[in-house]
Structure formats: structure tokens, C-alpha cells
Design a protein around this nucleic acid. Sequence first.
DNA 1: CCGCATCCCGGATGATACTG
DNA 2: CAGTATCATCCGGGATGCGG
Lengths: 117, 117
Amino acid sequence: MEPTDIVHSECLNILRPVRDALDVLNGKWKLPIIVALTFGEKRFGEIAREVQGITDRMLSKELRDLEVNGLVKRTIHDTYPVKVTYELTPHSKTLGEVIESLRKWGMLHRQNIMQHS
Amino acid sequence: MEPTDIVHSECLNILRPVRDALDVLNGKWKLPIIVALTFGEKRFGEIAREVQGITDRMLSKELRDLEVNGLVKRTIHDTYPVKVTYELTPHSKTLGEVIESLRKWGMLHRQNIMQHS
DNA sequence: CCGCATCCCGGATGATACTG
DNA sequence: CAGTATCATCCGGGATGCGG
């Protein structure tokens, strides 16, 4: 194995967690849903109304993804009619820095594109 | 407009640059290509060999995307046979922080998933 | 009210062959 | 060598309807 190959394979190892992170945030709806839950727990219908354009099917699926990834906690209240609420977990709060980092670069990038076109 | 609506719409404005950033990095190949170019300019064929599994078609398309986004510079050398090289731009260097941020969270996230399963 | 099942479309990606 | 052309495939996501 050449020295450059070693460096190169280390870069690929770095890429795995980066991909993990991107996968969690990817898709059209994950971020908007997280935003909708930023200010406290909400019911399915409330989220559906706040995240404009999303269908029940997608919301259901995305909430499950987020729950599996430990970003959202789902609570079934034993009332009638049944009430289900969703809220962010402490783990999801750690996303703040990532989002801020992406936001800053996104703005920088937009400036850069404007200048060169 | 309610106060919460104002807060909410500001969150949506924050989301736009975040989406911009994610779009630039998204897809299976962007990061690996950037990594391949980290240590200097390379020819099309060299990149194709380093980024394992990518087809010519995808490499061509992804390089064009990256060029349009100002992350990669393409140079045609007037030799025979024609030689084309690609290199990272200064702007692409600003991605470093973003990638590092994603990497850190990706690792944290993996730990978190392991514990809760 | 809260979701799941089914059907379907379009764009993203892959495989392969071909050209200047 | 550096791509393009063409066809096949996969998958996210929309529309709609049903069920507890």
C-alpha cells in the first residue's frame, strides 16, 4: 500500500460518518418537520398543517424515520379519541451546530455563485 | 400574522441556505470526487479510477455539477491526445468546516443509535 | 383523529456501446 | 483519453382510499 493510498483510505473513512449525517437530514421533509417541532411537542395533524405540502403518507414515513434515528419521540396518549404527540429528543438538539454550519456555508455559497455569473 | 408565525417563517428562511448546502453535497458521488481532488489536479480517467464504482456517465455529470457550483475548475490542455484536468477551487476549500461538522455529528449519531438499540 | 395500503409517475442512476 | 447516446432500472414521493 502506497503512502498516498493510506491517506486516501483515511479520507474514505472520514466520509462514512459524513454520509451518515447527510442521510439523516436528506429528503424534502426532515428539516421542515424538525423545525415544526422546535417549539414543543405537537400532534400529527398540527405538524401536517405546519409543514405545507406534505401528505399524510410522507409525514407518517418521515416521522418514523426520525424516530428510528432517535431524533423524535412518539407518545401515544390513552385518551379518546387517541392522541399521538411528537417531540424532539435531546439528541436532536445536537443537530443545531450542523444546521448552523450548513446554513452559513449555504449563504456563502449563494454569494459566490452570484459573483461568478 | 401571529408572533409564532413570524418565528416560524424565519425558521423557513433559515432552511433555504441549509437546503442549498445540502443540495451541493448530496448524491452518492460528490464527496468522493472532492476527496479524490484534494491532493491536486487530476485527469478524468484518474478520478474515474479513484472513485470506485462510478460510471463515466455519472462522473461526467457530477463534475459538471461541481463546476457549475464553482467547486471544481476544468482545464482543457491543448495537447494530443487531448488532456482535461480537474482541480478544486478556493471556494471548495471553504467546505472543510461543513464536512468536519457533519463528520463529528455523524460519529456522535452512530454512538447514539448503538446505545438505544 | 391518526395513520397504513395501494397505485403510479418522473427523475436519478446504472449498464453498455459508441465517437472525436 | 474523455466523454456521449441509449436503454433499463430504481426509488422518492404524490394521489387516493380504507381502517381503528
